[in-house]
C-alpha cells in the first residue's frame, strides 16, 4: 500500500440547492479542497464544490457555513482498523 492510495480521512457532501455561495467554507478549509462552481444553481448562486479528494474531515467548513444542511462532513470509519486490515491482507 502506498500513501497515494490511502482513503481520505473525510468526505464532503454539499447540497447545491441549499448553498448560497457565500464562500466562507472556501476561506475556512485548511487543505483548500473546496471551490466555487462555474455553473450557477437555479437560484442564481455559484455554489461550493468539493474537489473530490483531500478532505481531512476536520469539520470546520460545517461550522463556518451559515446554512443548517448545506454541508455534511463524513469521516472514515476507524481508519486504524482499515490500515490493520490492509496490513493483514498484504
Amino acid at each position: 500500500m502506498t500513501e497515494a492510495t490511502k482513503p481520505d480521512r473525510g468526505r464532503l457532501r454539499i447540497d447545491e440547492e441549499e448553498c448560497k455561495g457565500c464562500g466562507l467554507c472556501i476561506e475556512a478549509c485548511p487543505p483548500k479542497v473546496i471551490a466555487l462552481s462555474e455553473r450557477m444553481n437555479r437560484y442564481g448562486y455559484r455554489t461550493a464544490l468539493y474537489a473530490g479528494s483531500g478532505c481531512t474531515g476536520c469539520g470546520i467548513c460545517f461550522l463556518v457555513c451559515p446554512e443548517p444542511g448545506a454541508i455534511t462532513v463524513l469521516r472514515l470509519v476507524s481508519p486504524g482498523a482499515t490500515r490493520a486490515a490492509e496490513g493483514a491482507a498484504a
Binding site: 482513503p7 473525510g10 474531515g57 469539520g59 444542511g69 455534511t72 463524513l74 472514515l76
Partner: peptide, 10 residues
C-alpha cells in the same frame, strides 16, 4: 472505505 456522518444538519 466506509464513511459516517461526522457533522450534519442538527
Amino acid at each position: 472505505a466506509e464513511y459516517t456522518v461526522a457533522r450534519g444538519k442538527a
